[in-house]
Design a protein around this nucleic acid. Structure first.
Lengths: 213, 213
DNA sequence: CAAAGGCTATCGATCGATCGATCGAACGTC
DNA sequence: GACGTTCGATCGATCGATCGATAGCCTTTG
């Protein structure tokens, strides 16, 4: 078997949840996309909600691990922030469907299922917050409202998943670099525009996401 | 009657579509929220999809009208762009539910119903595009990829609807000003940080949205 | 003025379709 | 023959939508 049925179910769910939404996707849609009967689906998943929660967990854990690995050892806050931006943009451009599910369907989960997902997202956002706060404290960032700015930048970068197409005029590298530049400017970055380690981020994304970037 | 049933149906739909999504909102949920029977609902709307489309039309037309009014006569591209940012942020902070519906539920519409909605959104984005392009041409903006930057800024500003709370530490004015500053910086604005006409934008929002701002 | 007729707003009951989920049976492989 | 997969058939619940009926309120008519 080229890909296992289990993987097909997951891929089908990511695709359909991203395009039609969780409530807009029926069990039978899922089955058709995965080339299985609706009954067979339940051999590989619990409830439909379990499937959604599992997708969110793996996606967020992957992003969190990748971000920790990419920023490990990068001491300079400005460099750390640029690295986070590059990684975030690459991840959202490479896996827009998965990302859209994570970003848009969080609150269809029941409170019990939502809680650990939100905790993961918070842990990820804390990486951004500390990079920004450290930069402000060190004087390399000059920005009035760091917390609000963090939210603004995160939304800006996540938006990539909503419009980016690999067939567009911009290569992935240019896109990521451009966003790093936008973020640096918004933060009033005073340090030299030291390039984030783009190659390293590309390798991490390629490894974690299992794609060639 | 304080508010008409028709208005209650509309308000209920905006609230529930925003929080639970279009497909996550049942006719009976709508009826309960509007304090009507599910049968009576159909006295005030066509299908559920018609209701969604109507909400999107009025919301987008309002935003488009407000943006045109706010930027009329503001010749300087940098000033125009800051005005667009301020208005966009105010609108998204004042009516987050409506905005989330417009931003997130566009593609549950059938192609026929979606087409005019997308046309309205495109017309609105064209205001941003021309302000940015004019600024680049005039040399007041220095940015590598204007079209991508426009998308990035729009996503950033729209994100306000996903997290802003009037009970937060930031007043509406500060929020709008801060976003205008972020956008100016991202665009590499070289002109003096001339404040957008915040008061005028507030008045327009107060008038068009029928709220005190 | 009162009765008649029409119009707006509302509802309970119910339609066929689809929903998520489960069952027992059959398949192939070791 | 045991086990991992797959499926057709089907469950009760809920979906969006429609039905005929009713109650109140204008306007018209005698």
């Amino acid at each position: 078997m080229a890909v296992s049925s289990r993987e097909r179910v997951r891929a089908a769910a990511v695709k359909l949840f991203a395009t039609k939404g969780f409530h807009g996707t029926g069990i039978r849609d899922l089955a058709q996309e995965a080339e299985l009967s609706s009954a067979s689906l339940y051999h590989y998943m619990g409830t439909k909600e379990d499937l959604l929660a599992e997708i969110m967990h793996t996606a967020l854990n992957r992003l969190l691990d990748a971000a920790r690995e990419a920023t490990a050892g990068a001491g300079d806050p400005a460099h750390r922030l640029r690295t986070l931006v590059v990684l975030h943009v690459l991840a959202h451009a490479v896996g827009p469907a998965e990302t859209r599910v994570v970003d848009n369907e969080v609150d269809v989960l029941s409170p019990a299922a939502r809680e650990p997902v939100v905790a993961l997202r918070d842990a990820y956002e804390r990486l951004w917050a500390s990079a920004i706060d450290d930069g402000v404290a060190a004087g390399v960032f000059r920005v009035a409202h760091p917390a609000v700015t963090r939210l603004a930048l995160l939304e800006m970068c996540s938006g990539v998943a909503r419009w980016y197409s690999p067939r567009g005029p911009l290569a992935l590298d240019e896109l990521a670099e451009h966003y790093a530049e936008l973020a640096s400017r918004a933060l009033g970055c005073t340090s030299a525009p030291g390039v984030a380690d783009l190659r390293r981020c590309r390798e991490i994304v390629a490894k974690e996401w299992g794609v060639s970037v």
